[in-house]
Amino acid sequence: MKVTSISPAQDSIKLLQITDTHLFEPLDGSLLSVKTLDSFHAVVAAIAESGASYDAMLATGDISQDHTAVSYQHFEQGISPLALPCYWLPGNHDFKPSMHSVLPSSQIQQVEHVLLGDHWQMVLLDSQVVGVPHGFLSDDQLSMLDEKLTQNPDRHTLVLLHHHPLLVGSRWLDQHSLKEAESFWNVVEKHSNVKAVVCGHVHQDMNEMHRGVQVMATPSTCVQFKPKSDDFALDTQSPGWRELDLHNDGSVSTQVKRLASGSFQPDFNSAGY
């Protein structure tokens, strides 16, 4: 059964974002020498051990690295300790038929729109372009966003997608950004209710204001990319996740948390992936 509304336990909506898990069918599958299932499990364990409570979990794409149904099963099984509804969307590495193979799921929800309490809504966009790393939003996706913003003008809105709609200042990453992002921002600017946009894809922390909207990207649960690097480069930062508090007045407070320093270090001699 699809869960398309969340009733918060407190005054604000508390969300957990994890992204870019890059899981494989083999249990020891690795990306740039990081065993992604191990790092994913370590992140989930750290979140569980923290005792923090959330209303829902967001997974913003690149769940899988090898397109297999089993990799998505690993994800579904891996998040079970958190006992949260999980809203996911595809990234450039994902394979939608395999994503669908784990549905219906007791936790994973694949929906476009979620009502969050009395004051917020969430719109999930599919920016995948099959076979290439960059993103693009079809006319159907842009129309859906416009429709949800129009239908609920009094609800503050959180928009989710995989690809970054705002350049991060790394030449190699920015060529794989959301293409024709101006079309997205044109829809957003027609309305006054979009408060924040959250994405994955760039394997690093970003939190900037753009045209009055808070735009955030989040560290991967595995490998981190070095910020502001023109050429492919890996960062020494540990895997991480993001916490978001959506307040009734439309403001968003957020923080990125990470595993202990030095955890799951990649092969720094890698020239790409």
Rank of each mutant, 00 (worst) to 15 (best):
A69W: 04
L115S: 06
D55P: 11
Q151T: 13
H191Q: 11
P85W: 06
C86D: 10
S138Q: 14
Y72T: 03
P8F: 03
H164I: 11
G200P: 01
L124A: 02
V132H: 10
V130R: 08
K226M: 13
C199D: 10
V44F: 06
P81V: 10
S192F: 05
D20V: 07
Q65M: 11
V3M: 14
H100I: 08
C222I: 12
V3P: 01
L167T: 15
I79P: 00
Q121P: 14
S263P: 09
G135D: 03
I108S: 00
A45R: 11
V70P: 00
A48I: 10
A83H: 15
Q128G: 04
F264V: 06
H164W: 04
G135T: 09
W120N: 01
Q175R: 13
K190Y: 12
G240I: 01
H191L: 07
F24S: 00
S270E: 15
V187T: 09
V159S: 03
S138E: 14
G117E: 07
Q77W: 07
D118R: 08
L16S: 10
P81M: 10
L89G: 05
T19G: 03
L37P: 00
D245L: 11
H163R: 12
D66T: 06
L178D: 05
I6S: 04
Q128S: 09
P81L: 09
L158C: 09
Q10Y: 14
L27M: 14
G131Y: 08
K148L: 11
A69D: 08
H210V: 09
L124K: 01
L149N: 02
S127F: 06
S263I: 12
L160S: 08
I13L: 08
Q151V: 06
H162G: 00
M206N: 05
V70T: 12
D140W: 02
Q73E: 15
I63K: 00
P133H: 09
Q141T: 08
P219A: 07
G240W: 02
V197S: 03
H119S: 14
D28T: 14
L166M: 10
W172V: 10
Q237R: 13
G262L: 09
L244C: 03
V202D: 01
F184W: 13
P133V: 09
V44H: 05
A56E: 03
N152Q: 11
D146R: 02
F268E: 13
N186M: 12
L27Y: 14
S263L: 12
H134M: 07
M206H: 03
Y72M: 04
Y72F: 05
V70H: 08
W172T: 08
H93F: 07
